[in-house]
Structures are given as structure tokens and as C-alpha cells.
Design a protein around this nucleic acid. Structure first.
Lengths: 228, 228
DNA sequence: AAAACCTTTTGACTTAAATCAAGGGCAACT
DNA sequence: AGTTGCCCTTGATTTAAGTCAAAAGGTTTT
């Protein structure tokens, strides 16, 4: 989705009564942010729900030492800031514009009203939250039980599946950001890419990566083999 | 909560119409498990929702090498297995009886029917999922951005807050399990406890830990100081 | 009380990944 | 063309934490 022309094109708002769509359209406010601009910060009080309309938004945590763990990079159609709506009021992580972007903002009260009225919206929201829990569970598993090569292999396979583009994967983020997504640092990522390259698992060309040995990557991702 | 006598005592079912409570009571099935018994395994098809009635249930991931990351230890009143209900069908992690336990099981179809009928149930479910997302986000932060002493310090402070028992914390799980909860191994945990002891941060007596220097622990948890 | 079992601790060692520091490649701008 | 700045890579080193092995404490069983 390149842009959310109509509300009903947003997965979260699928199958909604047109009455609710109108209500939502009423309370919606568009906001613009430039690349790098902070949308909200961990700990801030959450006053509503955001949906990416245009561009990309990064959800992340950062340590005092400055190391960053990216939790999500959301594109058009993805809601964020929802946790604060349903549990407590503070944001559990920070959000900033990953690219110049436009977001739709729905006030807490108005949105909750709509959820209460339309079971479809509640269901869609439950589906969104469940998918994110699943994704987080996978990330926790990666961080706790896998080493960086395993995480990288899993990520590459995930990308190749998602894009359906065969064995050629095009990174849509810089390698530095990929490192933050994998819970490591650029230097380590660089070394591991080089090592995988040497071993004939992949072929790296700038931000294009050719998966030469998907089975080998699978073994790495499963933790059955080590990258020697 | 020591046991869920009535459904309406379960937070998830708070504020429900009595009609829905009756529906739920209809479809509910009680199941018993003995300590260590598997309830379901990651990847299994999810056919319904569980709620702990008696005892404790462990939700976890395990690596091929046998290292375990515990995601939750749930006591009475806590639902689990819900992600498979709302997003995809497979369980994202495994569940086993942490103690002998009894769980309530609600079939997928019947439960979804209730959610559709009663907005309160949807809301309660959204709150549950949101709280878990928040908890997972914190765990990801810990694993990615903090070292083990920081995680341990954070956990101890969390326990002391939760129990409200001043500065004396009683571990309800073995140190081995605490290690798996923190994403490390017993040896490492043991060493770090000993080190914190030596530095006068805590005083360990079996499974009772006295927090001698909460501020120092706070600094550790925030990553502002290192345990030398 | 002895045996068997499980948990925890301690020590010596290895290893994965972070840190520190420097250099290389590439694009944008002047 | 040259400079600036950014991103990426490479090398040397440090460090946190995992591994392996053994011993010490406890608890339950027989």
C-alpha cells in the first residue's frame, strides 16, 4: 500500500459499518513529520491511536549508552500507539519518522467509542495485537536463544518469503538499521555478512542480497548449525 | 487469587453480561495436568483459549541446544493460548504445567462467539493483549540493551514493587527458572547474585533476597552503572 | 540413616559479540 | 575536481556470558 486513500483500505478498518467509518473520519486528524522527527517518546502519556498514512515510522527502544533496538518499521496502513490505549496510558516505546511521513491520529476517547460500537473493529484490533505478540515472541526467541548469524539468516528468509521475489532480497533499510532490527551493531553485521558471503551462503551486492543456499540459511536460523 | 471459583472472578470476564457468562460456562471444559506435563507445543494448531484455574502454567520457547526462555509463568485467572485464536492458528510458544494444575478450556468457536456478542469481553481481551505487548517490549529491551546484572536488578525491583513487601523479596521460582526468565543460565545468575551480595546491593538467603540498596539496583537496571 | 536426586555454587576455560580505532567507498554539494 | 559527510568494512582488543566439570547443599525416598 503506497498510501491510504480511504479509511476502508486500512486493514484495521476493514469490514466496518459505514457509520463507524464516518465517525472515524470525523475525529481523524492528519499530522506530518519530517525524517527523524520524534512522534512520541517512551513514557509519554498516550492520548490516541496513530495510523501510518504515508512514509514509514520507526518504533524503537534506546539504551542510555545509545544502542538502539528497533521494534517495528511500519508503513502505510499500520496502526501504532495502541498499547497505551488499552493498557495503562504511557507509551512503552518511542516512535519517530523513519522517512518523511504523514500519519492519521485518532483521539483516545473517540476511537474507544468506535471500538465499543462496532465488534468488527474490536476483532480487527485483536488480530493486530495478536500478530504483534507473535512477532515479539519470535524476536524474544531470536535474542535469547539464537546468535546473530541465526537471526540474520531468519530475517533474510523472512524477507524473501514476504517479497515473494524468489531468492533475491532487496534491503529496504540501511545495514546499520538492519543491525538495530536484529539487536546487534553495524560492525558485527558487516562481519557476518562477509562470512556468509565467503561460505557461499549469500552474495551481497550493496543492498541486494542473493540467497545462494536457502537450506543452509534455514539450518543456521534453526540453530542446528553454526557459522564457522 | 488462589482459585477461580466463579467465572466473573476472572479479570478477563469482568463486567460481562450474565448471559455471556452462562454461555461461557456452557462451553467450558476443565482439564488437569501434572507438573511438567505438556499442555501444547509451539506450532500446534490452536483450537481454543485456556485460563489457569489452579496452579501455575509456564509459557516458553526452547532452542535446539536445550536452552529455555520462559515468556510467562501464569497463575489462576490468567488466559493463555489466545494469540492463535485471533491471528493465524498455530501457537507461537509452548505451554506446560509448572505445578500440578487445572485449566479451563474454551473452544475457539464458542469463545469467538462470545467476544462478538459482548463488547466488554472484547475490551478485556484487548487490555490483556496490550499488557502482554508492553511486557514483551520490556523483555526485548532487557535482552537487547541490558546486561544480565541490569535485567536481574530490574526483576528484583519489579518483584519488590509487585509484592509490596518492602525490600524483602521472596522468589517463587527456583534460581534455575529465574535464570530462564531472565534469558540466561543458572551459573551466570549465581555468579551475579554472589557479586551483588559482595557489593552490598543485596543479601541472599536461600530464596529470600533482601534489597539493601534499591537506588544502586535502580542505577544498574537503568544501565547507568556496571557491576564491576 | 543412607541413598538418590535436584539445585546451586565455584573454578577454569572458551567464545560470541561489543568496543575502539582507522581506513575505504560513494554520493552530494560547492 | 575537490571537499564534506555518511555509511560500511576491517583489524586489534576487550569483555560479558556461555560451556564444561566438579563439588557442595538440600530435599525427598527408601
Amino acid at each position: 500500500m503506497d498510501r491510504c486513500g480511504r479509511l476502508e483500505d486500512i486493514p484495521l478498518f476493514e469490514d466496518l459499518e459505514s457509520e463507524q467509518l464516518q465517525d472515524l473520519a470525523q475525529i481523524l486528524k492528519k499530522q506530518n513529520f519530517t525524517r527523524g522527527q520524534r512522534i512520541f517518546t517512551e513514557g509519554d502519556e498516550g492520548n490516541g491511536l496513530y495510523v501510518v498514512d504515508l512514509g514509514q515510522v520507526k518504533i524503537f527502544k534506546i539504551s542510555p549508552a545509545g544502542k538502539e533496538q528497533i521494534l517495528h518499521i511500519f508503513g502505510p496502513g499500520n496502526p501504532f500507539g495502541e498499547i497505551a490505549m488499552f493498557a495503562g496510558e504511557s507509551f512503552p516505546a518511542s516512535a519517530e519518522a523513519f522517512t518523511d511521513c504523514q500519519v492519521l491520529f485518532f483521539s483516545r476517547h473517540g476511537f474507544l467509542e468506535c471500538v465499543r460500537k462496532d465488534p468488527s473493529l474490536a476483532f480487527n484490533m485483536l488480530a493486530v495485537l495478536s500478530r504483534r505478540l507473535r512477532k515479539f515472541a519470535a524476536l524474544i526467541e531470536d535474542l535469547s536463544l539464537k546468535e546473530v548469524p541465526g537471526r540474520l539468516a531468519a530475517h533474510l528468509l523472512y524477507l524473501s518469503e514476504k517479497d515473494g521475489a524468489g531468492d533475491k532480497v532487496k534491503l529496504e533499510v540501511s545495514k546499520g538499521h538492519l543491525a538495530a532490527l536484529l539487536g546487534t551493531i553495524p560492525e558485527t553485521l558487516s562481519r557476518i555478512l562477509a562470512k556468509m558471503n565467503r561460505q557461499g551462503l549469500i552474495e551481497v551486492n550493496g543492498s541486494t542480497i542473493l540467497l545462494l543456499d536457502p537450506d543452509g540459511l534455514e539450518d543456521l536460523a534453526e540453530g542446528e548449525v553454526k557459522l564457522t
